[in-house]
Design a protein around this nucleic acid. Sequence first.
DNA 1: GAGCAAGTAGCACGATTGTGCTAGAACCCG
DNA 2: CGGGTTCTAGCACAATCGTGCTACTTGCTC
Lengths: 191, 191
Amino acid sequence: MDPVGRRHDLAEAVWRVVRRDGLDGASVRAVAREAGLSMGSLRHYFGTQSELLVFAMRLVIDRIEQRVASLRVPDDPRRAAETVLRELLPLDDERRAENEVWLAFTARALVDPALRALRDEGYDLLRDACLGWVRLLVGPERAPVDVDVETDRLFALLDGLAVHAAMRPAHCSPELLTTVLSRHLDDLATR
Amino acid sequence: MDPVGRRHDLAEAVWRVVRRDGLDGASVRAVAREAGLSMGSLRHYFGTQSELLVFAMRLVIDRIEQRVASLRVPDDPRRAAETVLRELLPLDDERRAENEVWLAFTARALVDPALRALRDEGYDLLRDACLGWVRLLVGPERAPVDVDVETDRLFALLDGLAVHAAMRPAHCSPELLTTVLSRHLDDLATR
DNA sequence: GAGCAAGTAGCACGATTGTGCTAGAACCCG
DNA sequence: CGGGTTCTAGCACAATCGTGCTACTTGCTC
């Protein structure tokens, strides 16, 4: 198989192990077993465990970026914002997987320098997106400081919803998530 | 020393290790070393590692509850809400510690059944608090479904702010956190 | 077909883990 | 002062970990 494809397969094996047993459970042996490979074979694609995990975390960002980029966005700003930001909520199993894996990696990034840069990159991307939509929705008459506050408010809301969806999936139906987001965007646009 | 006091000391040693090296780093040996005790001695107070970690996580809830309970709350609902909810934000180092430790434990609760009940307990307490303040602030003329949506919105905002404060402390000054909360409560009260 | 690169497998080593266990020190109460 | 409980310390064991290393197989290229 394509070597780069194989690395993707291994990263997805990491995702599955992480979702099942947490990042602590993602030992080299466990990932190899999950992927149906031997340890030695895995190490032919990833020299160290750190390299493997960084690649698996990077894949989260890439996948989300790619999905958002391939989105057909309406012209109306309000509906455009909802379309894009909806895509960041864990509404189906694919996005739930990305969300849980991302959460596990960011938690470890608190103590693992190798993952910190990736976490910052992901957060910067998301915050910039929030900033852009807030600018578009509140209009130019709003004071710049308000834009900053509203950006961090939207930013925190999105991450909070994602965290809650991971922690209490039973209490966070897709309908609830979208309703909360929609309500917030309404308030943002009608002020 | 008082045995119960000793258990508290050990739990605080867990906190320090968790903040420094993550929950993965909180091995029995590391915690014992941090507390200046031998492994065997630690195991006299906590028979298993799981018991130790559960106690340390429980302490997070207890500490926050205790701090909130000892709060002098203004009569005005809007100011009362801000006073109490402010107390849940990581505005000083004591609350930052609680926040980071709580985050680490909830992340592990995703794959560790022993911690799940405590995570649920903490989340239920926080959501109930949000529900109460939303009811008080929006008034009785609001539809019940709106109250639910606004509750989960406030709930997600608070947790999102806490997560961001832990992940990017440089970008989340106490002023920013309180401003965002205050803005949100304003919107809630003036609708 | 020869030969070299790529892929696969698996052993070995030292380090670290949680916990069971024993033995001695400290303390308190009668 | 004696005796029993509480506390402390530390060893031992099996399990697991990441990684270095070697050997075998596969496949592609002259």
